[in-house]
Nucleic acid binder design. Structure first.
Lengths: 342, 342
DNA sequence: GTTAGCACTCATTTGTGGTGAGTGCTAATT
DNA sequence: AATTAGCACTCACCACAAATGAGTGCTAAC
């Protein structure tokens, strides 16, 4: 037995209906649909076949069918080739995003907010990963007798800081000179390259070894590791709007994911560089999300920087809409972040 | 009729039991308790009186009694005079807080985490309010041709930044000079005072009026207004562990509070300078929290800076434990933030 | 002042039959 | 050979009723 056109058409109708209602769909429902010229009995036969093929499942004997993860996979793969988003939605997004705040952090918050609003699912955005960005400036700002704030400005106007120990009593002027020197040395390099450059520096000059060592390890440890504030989550409670989580135990289960940012960060990182990645159920990589889907997209910052945006919702999510919105948002964010650069 | 000692004793027993079980408590339950030498009938008479006095309510005729907000108020006011926390708990807190991270933001995150863990309720901590802190240093770090990052370091090692426009083509050296000058002028003043100082500056020198104006308004607008990242919320889903929110609609209602940080910030600010403030039900000031209580404490940063920590839970929360933990955490945070200062 | 006794209330649980959406199978129809 | 009408069967869900039991208020006895 094979999945011919008619079977696929019926499967699609079932998925569409189930996405809308979250209720197992029966043969009559499909038969009544416009464009389907078959009686419930015929549909039933086909459904039975689809079940055997692993695309449908029955919660219990006298209920309708629900799509399996395999069905969603098929559905999504065909859908991905289309994409596209209504002009109206694009305008709505543009309107909220034309904000042009010059603080990246703030822009990302708005973006996450817009994303969650447009899709009605929980959104997640990961700030650009530092290691691929090019350093534009390093400056040490004294904050106490023996500590300074190291401010690193990168190509996208993204600013990160970390505290470094400095020799007791060093003057602000002195720190400024060192900053200028560091800026000169590190400019246009990525964070991943700093180690080599410092190695060179250490060879060339013996002064300030302790200080420079501190700066280097701060760059490698504090700036490159992912901090909890690098991920912004918007609208976690949107999950509760869907009947699959009307049970508090299930709700707790899902919401707990949003409380452990590190685990979330981990699975988001795994989406690779794909333009749009869709992971269904167990593919998400988290036990708690086994009944959810994760759709991620990548945005870029200049020629090298990358970041991830994603939404999480029930497996029966409105993939069509989500794919459209995600693709467009990815572009918008990329433009905003790369455009600001000069 | 008056609230004599016996009535209070019974009321306390009822509250204690209700806090533990969330189930309306009956006369038999109280009668059986050790230390109570009366039969259910006697308790019933007293309960009837307590109801008339407004301290108890009955969900329906054949159910036990539950404490009213007025009862909690009384209970809490007497409890507040005692306070105190077990040595064991103190040690547990110390252990987690001895971290001594030099990033304030990170410390606040851990503190909120510990707070939520120790109380088993949702915790909220507001970063120190800038306007009361004294400026230690101002530095402008160039980030592009026409923009700089203004980094402001305050007495507690708390660092804030904002982007300011700068005249096209100004050199890094020049910005450094201006920073030094600004630091000299603004040092040891609070943000609320900058306006006056700038007025003076404007009178004395006519150069860089645009730039200085930009710096001033950035200080007043960006640094003083409260940003969403100034408030950290930990363990919102802890709410779902309590039976009063086992209904998803109610859960959604409560959790929505944690999604509008501005509103939360507003009510937190209202706790005034009280060492510990307890707001029960409608006193919280948010419709959604009418069945919750909000316990806040103030921590101090140096002699002037102030911030707020709080926990939110059902009105039948374990006030004894919460008050103890809050009081102690307030001290610990104050010490950490004021101790680092030199 | 306290308590035993008792009738009463009412949310909750348990049981029961009815309803209806849905299925699978078979035989008739196209 | 494919489609469909017909029919017996399944089973979640609903409504209703009866049983249960925790709790009350009141009264009379201690």
């Amino acid at each position: 037995m094979t999945l011919d056109d008619r079977k696929f058409m019926i499967l699609k109708a079932i998925i569409d209906d189930y996405i809308l209602t979250a209720v197992p769909v029966g043969s009559r429902t499909i038969s009544r649909k416009a464009g389907v010229g078959f009686s419930p009995a015929t549909i039933r036969n086909e459904m039975s076949d689809l079940e055997e093929l692993g695309y449908l499942a029955q919660p219990h004997t006298s209920a309708g069918r629900i799509p399996s993860n395999k069905a969603y996979r098929l559905y999504v793969d065909r859908l991905l080739k289309m994409g596209g988003l209504s002009q109206e939605m694009k305008m709505r997004i543009d309107q909220h995003m034309n904000h042009r705040s010059n603080q990246v952090e703030e822009m990302i918050r708005t973006a996450a907010s817009v994303l969650s609003d447009a899709t009605q699912y929980t959104s997640v955005i990961v700030a650009p990963q530092m290691h691929s960005l090019r350093i534009k400036r390093v400056q040490l700002v004294p904050i106490s007798d023996n500590a300074a704030l190291m401010v690193v400005v990168t190509s996208a106007g993204i600013v990160k800081d970390a505290v470094v120990r400095v020799p007791e009593g060093i003057t602000s002027e002195h720190l400024y000179r060192i900053s200028e020197m560091l800026t000169g040395e590190l400019q246009n390099h990525t964070l991943s390259e700093v180690r080599q450059i410092f190695a060179q520096l250490f060879r060339d000059l013996s002064m300030h070894r302790r200080l420079l060592g501190g700066v280097m390890s701060a760059m490698e440890d504090k700036l490159m590791e992912d901090a909890p504030e690098d991920i912004v989550i918007m609208g976690p409670t949107k999950m509760l709007n869907y009947p699959e989580y009307s049970d508090v135990e299930k709700a707790k289960n899902i919401l707990s994911v949003f409380e452990s940012r590190d685990r979330l960060m981990n699975i988001l990182k795994k989406s690779g560089g794909m333009e749009i990645s869709i992971r269904i159920g167990p593919e998400t990589g988290l036990e708690e999300l086994k009944d959810c889907s994760l759709v991620t997209a990548t945005y870029s910052v200049g020629p090298h920087g990358k970041g991830t945006l994603g939404i999480i919702g029930p497996t029966r999510m409105d993939y069509g809409r989500v794919i459209g919105v995600m693709g467009y948002m990815g572009q918008v964010i990329s433009n905003l972040l790369s455009g600001e650069e000069q």
